[in-house]
C-alpha cells in the first residue's frame, strides 16, 4: 500500500511538473499581455512532433535542444502576425483567436503526422528502473523532474537577473510606464510570448516520452494548467509552479483511493480555493480583475 501511494504521489509529481511547465508559459503570457493562450496545448503538441521528426537526424538529445527552440520561433511569428493586432482590444478576441488556432494546430498535427499515436523512442539509458523495490523510479522520470526543475530555475534566473526578465516583470506591473521609459513594448511582448511557447515546446518534448504522442496530447494538458494558475495564484509565477505540483500530486493520490475522480478532484480543489481565497494561494492582492 505504501508503495502504491508512493508510486502515485511520484507519478503525480511528474505530471504536476508538466502542468507547472505549461502553466508557467501560459501565466507569463497572461500576466504581461492579458491573453489566455488557448493554443498553448497546440504548441506543446507541435514541440513534441517536431522532436519526433528531428529525432532520426539529431538523436533524442539533439531534438530535446532544437525542438523547443523551433517551436518558440514559430510562436514568435504567430504572435507577430495574428495576436499583435488584438492587444488593447477586449480579451474576448484574443481568446477566440487562440481558440481557432488550437483547432488548426491539432488538426494540422493530425493531417501531417496522422491521428494514431506514434512511437516516441527514449534512450535506453533512461528507461531502466533504478531500484527493484521502487520500480517506478525510472531514469526517465527522474530525468524529467530534474529537467523541469532546471527549466524553472532558468526561467526565474531570466526573470530576476537579465534585462529582458526585469522588463517583463516591470511590464506585468505597469506596461504603460515601461513603455514611456523607452522600452519597445511590442518587442517585449513578442519575446515574452516566445519564452512562454518555448516552455510549452519543452513540456511537449518531455511529455511525449511518458504519455505517448498523439494530436490530442496538448488538449488533455491545457485544462489542468488553467486550474494550476487559478489554484496557485493569479499573477504569481511561484504560485503557478506550486499550483501545478499540488494538483498533480492531488490527482495522483486520488488515483489510489477513488480512481474515477482522478480528473474531477483538481476542479474540486479549484472550487475550494475560489471559495476561501479567490485570488489563489499565492495570488497578488487585487489581481482578480
Amino acid at each position: 500500500m505504501t508503495q502504491l501511494i508512493l508510486f502515485n504521489v511520484f507519478n503525480g509529481l511528474v505530471v504536476g511538473a508538466f502542468y507547472a511547465l505549461m502553466a508557467l508559459g501560459l501565466s507569463l503570457i497572461l500576466n504581461l499581455s492579458g491573453v489566455i493562450n488557448f493554443a498553448h496545448g497546440g504548441f506543446l503538441a507541435l514541440g513534441a512532433y517536431l522532436a519526433y521528426t528531428l529525432m532520426p537526424y539529431t538523436g533524442f538529445w539533439g531534438a530535446l535542444v532544437v525542438a523547443p527552440v523551433l517551436t518558440a520561433v514559430i510562436g514568435l511569428a504567430i504572435e507577430r502576425v495574428l495576436i499583435r493586432p488584438l492587444y488593447g482590444r477586449d480579451p474576448l478576441y484574443s481568446l477566440l483567436l487562440t481558440f481557432g488556432l488550437a483547432y488548426v494546430l491539432e488538426d494540422g498535427a493530425r493531417f501531417i503526422w496522422g491521428a494514431q499515436s506514434v512511437p516516441y523512442p527514449i534512450p535506453a539509458s533512461l528507461t531502466t528502473p533504478l531500484s527493484t523495490e521502487f520500480f517506478f523510479l525510472t531514469g526517465y522520470r527522474l530525468f524529467m523532474v530534474a529537467l523541469v526543475a532546471v527549466a524553472v530555475l532558468g526561467l526565474f534566473f531570466i526573470l530576476n537577473r537579465t534585462r529582458l526578465g526585469i522588463r517583463i516583470r516591470a511590464g506585468t506591473l505597469d506596461l504603460e510606464t515601461v513603455s514611456v521609459l523607452g522600452v519597445n513594448v511590442r518587442v517585449l511582448r513578442n519575446l515574452n510570448f516566445g519564452l512562454g511557447i518555448y516552455l510549452a515546446g519543452l513540456a511537449g518534448v518531455l511529455a511525449a516520452g511518458m504519455l505517448g504522442l498523439q494530436p490530442t496530447i496538448g488538449t488533455s494538458l491545457i485544462m489542468p494548467s488553467f486550474v494550476a494558475i487559478i489554484v496557485g495564484g493569479l499573477g504569481s509565477l511561484p504560485g503557478t509552479l506550486l499550483g501545478g505540483l499540488l494538483i498533480g500530486v492531488a490527482s495522483g493520490l486520488t488515483t489510489v483511493f477513488l480512481p474515477s475522480a482522478t480528473e474531477a478532484v483538481i476542479y474540486v480543489m479549484m472550487g475550494l480555493v475560489l471559495l476561501v481565497r479567490p485570488r489563489g494561494l499565492l495570488g497578488e492582492e487585487g489581481r482578480t480583475q
Binding site: G34, V35, M223, I230, A264, M270, T288, Q289
Partner: peptide
Amino acid sequence: LIVKLRGVYFAMVTIAFGQVFFFIAFR
C-alpha cells in the same frame, strides 16, 4: 464561486469548471 473574478480570469475559471461536467459525463 466565480462572481468575484473579472475579465480574463472569469473566462479562465468558467473554462475550467466546464470540464468538471465533461469528466462526470465521460466517466
